[in-house]
Design a binder for these strands. Structure first.
Lengths: 123, 123
DNA sequence: GTTCGATATGCAACTATTTTCATATCGCCT
DNA sequence: AGGCGATATGAAAATAGTTGCATATCGAAC
């Protein structure tokens, strides 16, 4: 998420967008988005977790939970072989990331428009 | 925040909007918004905390922290007197809540528009 | 068939967040 | 003056969230 420009009061407006299960549990939000993108880039969950400064254990658990909630896989997991193993995104995961991007662009525009207003009102 | 309508996959799209300090600390988000509205309604921090199912200690600490970050008061605190004391919102707090509402309405519209798109893409 | 490194997973250790508790202060009301 | 109940605040106790560790499995490559 890009940091919106600051007001002179040193206050930003920020937002988060996420896919949620009916249970209220978050499925994909900022963090999962980033994690998936990093897996895509690095080719492995381990490298992605390291890159994000989070434990492998957590990253792994997070992906697993999201997959359970969605009812389908976000990553194709490969154990053994070259490099010990790897993870790739499924096409469904790629679709979600793409849709998430588009949504964010729209939200960014909306918030941009609304921001000026807001700034004036809270002065 | 109103729960956006569900897709047939039992997945919602949700978002949170908040005012953030440059430090990255949240100043006013969903929870603080609700807390302030409840203080406004109930007339006391204690009643508001109970109403929200959160400890008085936490509610009090949260308000205090927000006020420190903003550099001004969100509530007028009164100890003693009728009922033991009370808390009212300052006019600045009211302005913020109002601006927050307006922003939410705009974001709701934006997300509403974007949602159909999203739904199709992640199918 | 042995080695290598990532995935897979339970569990203990640790950190961060919240609640609970204890105690003090304040000001209207009787 | 004394009681009542909310605000004020620190400190300990309890929860929740993460990390670290240990151990197992897998499969390509040598």
């Amino acid at each position: 998420m890009k940091p919106p420009r600051s007001s002179k009061n040193d206050v930003f407006l920020r937002y988060k967008l996420w896919l949620s299960a009916v249970s209220g549990e978050g499925i994909i939000g900022e963090d999962k988005y980033k994690l998936l993108r990093t897996i895509e880039e690095k080719g492995s969950l381990k490298a992605a977790a390291e890159d994000m400064g989070v434990s492998y254990r957590k990253a792994w658990g997070d992906i697993k939970k999201s997959e359970e909630l969605l009812g389908y896989e976000l990553t194709e997991k490969h154990r053994g072989g070259v490099g010990g193993g790897k993870s790739d995104l499924t096409s469904k995961a790629k679709n979600i990331l793409e849709a998430y991007d588009a949504l964010h662009r729209k939200m960014d525009n909306a918030i941009e428009d609304a921001y000026e207003d807001f700034k004036d009102k809270i002065k």
